[in-house]
Design a protein around this nucleic acid. Structure first.
Length: 473
RNA sequence: GGCCCCUUCGUCUAGCGGUUAGGACGUCGGCCUCUCACGCCGAAAACAUGGGUUCAAGUCCCGUAGGGGUCACCA
């Protein structure tokens, strides 16, 4: 027998944007598929028709594409195990449910929602666990009556599976109840739908959030009832907010799109997310190829992790520094445009990015902080009072004249000009550079002053110096 | 509440019976310096707790506490 190719999947419900936690689940699956040379399947679990939307499908696909998580089978690309939307697979679930019914492993239940709710209420009043009592277990099958299909769970014993992340996990059967697997309208519930799909899509390893650990024994039991060996399972710990509760909106942005809009590089998000729960010694920064090569389940931690935006910013900064300036400039254009600046896709932007990137954490910050290279300065009143003084005025005039008379704006020439001006007046270089900085940028913090002059160019530099000389007392 | 899972600096983690418990983010100091950053150097900072097992326990076992998850005709 040939060893089967690894097949993994990501199976989101299209009820909203791609959540940072979902993205990490998708990422780990994708990494394992690429690491093993296997296949990565994307399946849309849209059986909850009230909450599923097409725009959510689009948002999830967009998010995955932005992160570079390409799928080998699924929406838009198709594949031999389709369709990849659960609502288009209803006949498959029905077929498997009938198989179970025929073997007496599932049965029709005619209890009404009201009856069940009453039972639940009573159990609660008696401070007792409610479990479906098996009322319809042995009733004859009557398809003409409204019914759901339930799976017959064993009453005693326990089921154990070996989780790739958490190790062996046992579930006592007496905590299980005869679950509904098909609703009255023929739509499957999560455990059954996911299981039938994983089975028919030949998934060999199910990696999902560990909010599903309690579902696993039930699914294993159903696999066994169908006479098939269950896939391997890997349950990824949750991502938590700063207060150690499950990461949600009240902790801040949770969609990957939000991080794109904040100016994060896609690979920086990938790099951060993978390190949240997986490690390789002391290494923090990984290229995509390294991740594919190094990723394994052994190094996935079993503990939930707190999402730390500061560290993600640091990772982003590392990748901004590692990205070729030309490429980074291209990625920065939308952020400058969003900041209201147009005509930025040019060589000047490459220069801005080169000197600016070490001073910011994100592309959005870059556009915001260095807008004065493309827009009129906003003169900080405090900086003006402190540096555009009567004493500074002649210095500014000398620099202005020097730049006007200079040939090409070479760094060496500028240095000579600034230092010469300082020495003649017995001033520290800062007494020259700071007033010029305020004149050219409006504030007291900026990239190196020679870079600023070079980026602005002679014409704009002279214009801003003239304005500063004009407003100085 | 039942069941399941988890527990090393504030946070992410390394550690796989013998370590001065290492790294990273963040914080704080210093150096560099035309400002701000970057970079470099340094500091503070952790094995939840109680019992075992062992010559030896952060590492193995049990209990306790704390945290998380889950108990639907949601996923």
């Amino acid at each position: 027998m040939v060893s089967p190719v690894t097949r993994v999947r990501f199976a989101p419900s299209p009820t909203g944007y791609l959540h940072i936690g979902g993205a990490r689940t998708a990422l780990f699956n994708w990494l394992w598929a690429r690491h093993t040379g296997g296949r990565f399947v994307l399946r849309i679990e849209d059986t909850d028709r009230e909450r599923s939307t097409q725009s959510a499908v689009d948002a999830i696909l967009d998010g995955m594409r932005w992160l570079g998580l390409d799928w080998d089978e699924g929406p838009e690309v198709g594949g031999p195990h389709g369709p990849y939307f659960q609502t288009e697979r209803l006949d498959v679930y029905k077929q498997y449910a009938e198989k179970l019914i025929a073997q007496g492993k599932a049965y029709a239940c005619y209890c009404t929602k009201e009856e069940l709710d009453a039972g639940r209420k009573q159990a609660e009043a008696e401070k007792r666990q409610f479990r479906y009592p098996g009322t319809c277990r042995d009733k004859p099958y009557d398809p003409s009556k409204r019914h759901v299909i339930r799976f017959r769970m064993p009453d005693a014993g326990y089921t154990t599976f070996d989780d790739l992340v958490k190790g062996p996990i046992s579930t006592p059967h007496d905590t299980l109840q005869d679950e509904v697997i098909l609703r009255g309208d023929g739509v499957p519930l999560y455990n059954f739908g996911a299981l039938v799909d994983d089975l028919t899509m030949e998934i060999t390893l199910v990696a999902r959030g560990d909010d599903h650990v309690n579902n696993t024994a039930r699914q294993v039991l159903m696999y066994e009832a169908l006479g098939v060996t269950p896939p391997a399972f890997a349950h990824l710990p949750m991502i938590l907010g700063a207060d150690k509760t499950r990461l949600s909106k009240r902790h801040g942005a949770t969609s990957v799109t939000a991080y794109r809009d904040m100016g994060f590089l896609p690979h920086a998000v990938v790099n951060y997310l993978v390190r949240l729960g997986w490690s390789h010694g002391d290494q923090e920064i990984f290229t995509r190829d390294e991740l594919v090569q190094l990723f394994d389940w052994k190094s996935v931690g079993a503990t939930a992790g707190v999402f730390n935006p500061e560290k993600m910013q640091w990772v982003n900064h590392q990748w901004m520094m590692a990205t070729p300036p030309y490429e980074l400039a291209r990625l920065a254009v939308p952020h400058f445009q969003r900041a209201g600046l147009t005509d930025v896709a040019d060589e000047k932007l490459v220069h801005v990015v080169t000197v600016g990137r070490e001073r910011v954490k994100t592309l959005a910050e870059l556009a915001e902080q260095f807008r004065y290279f493309y827009a009129p300065i906003a003169l900080d009143p405090k900086a003006k009072d402190k540096f555009l003084t009567a004493e500074a005025k002649p210095v500014l005039e000398e620099i202005r004249a020097g730049i006007a008379a200079m040939g090409a704006l070479e760094t060496a020439a500028l240095e000579q000009l600034f230092h010469g001006a300082a020495e003649r007046r017995e001033l520290k270089i800062g007494k020259v550079a700071q007033p010029v900085r305020v004149a050219l940028t409006g504030g007291t913090a900026s990239p190196g002053i020679y870079d600023v002059v070079q980026i602005l160019g002679r014409e704009e530099t002279l214009r801003r110096l003239d304005e500063a000389i004009r407003v100085a007392p």
